[in-house]
Amino acid sequence: MSAASQSFEAPAEARTSAAPAGRRSGRAVSARLLLGVVLPLGLGLVWEAVVASGFASGRLMPPPSRVIAELVRLASTGALWEHSLITLSRVLGGFAGGAVAGIALGVLTGTSRLLRDLLDPSFQALRSIPSIAWVPLFILWLGIFEASKVTLIAVGVFFPVYLGVSSALMSVDRRTAEVGRIFRLSRLATVRRILLPSILPATVVALRTGLGLGWMFVVAAEFMGASSGLGYLLVDGQQLGKPTQILAAILTFAVLGKATDAILASLAAPFLRWQDSVGEAP
């Protein structure tokens, strides 16, 4: 067989080997997804059996069947979708503002000793303030409507993103930064072409942490006299003594939080394909 024919056959062989690999990858992802629901599904089935057998009344801790029935009821009236979309829009708005500010100030303090000495002590002190402590101040400044809620969420997102980016920049190996000097790059070019790619994995982790805190802070934000959102469903369920509604709202929080985290991780995955880490091993 000639070299030319071999060169034409190589792509076909690559395609045939890539197809089974793709199917194996798809099966691995499906297996991981199924494995991830084993624990909550098992716990739910156990509690359902405990209540059904009469060992517990399920009044204050309803079984999954009642919670699912409540979710179906809320969905059929449209209330679940309305409150979920309102809460989601607040989280995404606060996340966008907090993430942009956190990355920008993290880069500044991580690359400038002067700015770090000037700003970082104040940020570290503010980071220790509980989320609920900001509520009366933001209501006083911004009122009780959307601005105060989104700002509170942005504050919750800002600090982990800022800390993650700033700490990652300060921990970059000095020899890596010196590559920019060897190639006579400007300070801005060194940050853009060397330092930022070096801290990308840590930045993704910081963003995911900030997103998780955004979902936590939205509950405090929606306690600020809100008449809509999943936090409102929590308060309404507590005031009217409806534990099924409370658990339905909590479950919706969990699903939306996991979904947004998975979307963020999948968006970042193409930029992290170069990593060869232990976590990527089968």
Rank of each mutant, 00 (worst) to 15 (best):
T176I: 15
A202C: 04
R116T: 01
V157L: 04
S128K: 14
G143S: 12
R193L: 13
V191W: 07
V100S: 09
A220P: 07
L118T: 15
T190N: 10
P130A: 04
V135Q: 06
V107M: 08
I199W: 03
T190Q: 09
Y162P: 02
D173S: 11
R192S: 06
S122T: 14
L152V: 06
P121C: 06
S122Q: 05
D117M: 11
F123P: 07
V100T: 02
R181F: 11
P136H: 10
V191G: 08
G110Y: 09
L140H: 12
V165H: 05
T109R: 08
F145S: 14
L195K: 00
V100H: 01
L140E: 06
K149T: 00
S186W: 04
S171G: 06
T209L: 15
A177Q: 12
L200I: 11
T176G: 02
L105R: 09
A147I: 08
I182P: 13
A202N: 10
L152N: 06
G164P: 07
I144H: 11
V191F: 13
G143H: 10
T209R: 12
P201Q: 08
G143Y: 11
T190M: 05
P160T: 08
E222H: 05
E146Y: 05
P160L: 07
L142E: 02
T203W: 09
P121F: 01
A125H: 06
T203R: 10
A104T: 14
L119W: 10
T176W: 13
L108H: 13
Y162R: 03
V179F: 10
A202Q: 13
A104R: 02
V191R: 06
L105E: 10
T190I: 01
T209Y: 00
A104M: 10
S122R: 08
V172D: 00
L195N: 02
L188Q: 14
D173I: 04
L114Q: 12
V155L: 13
V165A: 00
V107Y: 02
R187I: 07
R113M: 04
G106M: 01
L142H: 11
A202L: 09
P197C: 02
F123C: 08
Q124R: 15
F217N: 15
T151H: 01
G164A: 07
D173W: 09
V135F: 07
W134E: 12
V219G: 02
A101L: 08
L105N: 04
R187G: 09
E146K: 07
I144L: 15
A101N: 02
A177W: 08
A206G: 13
P121H: 06
A104L: 14
V155C: 10
V155N: 03
S122F: 12
D173H: 04
R175F: 05
W215A: 06
I199A: 02
I182G: 12
E178D: 15
I194C: 07
L137P: 11
L169W: 03
F138K: 12
A220N: 12
A221H: 03
M216W: 00
S167Y: 01
D173E: 13
T209C: 09
G110M: 03
S186I: 04
A177R: 14
L140F: 15
A202E: 12
A221R: 03
A220I: 12
G143W: 07
A202G: 02
T111K: 05
L169V: 05
A104C: 03
V157M: 00
R208H: 10
W141G: 05
I129S: 15
T151A: 06
V135G: 08
I132D: 12
L126V: 09
T209P: 05
I103V: 13
A168K: 09
I103H: 00
V172S: 00
I129H: 13
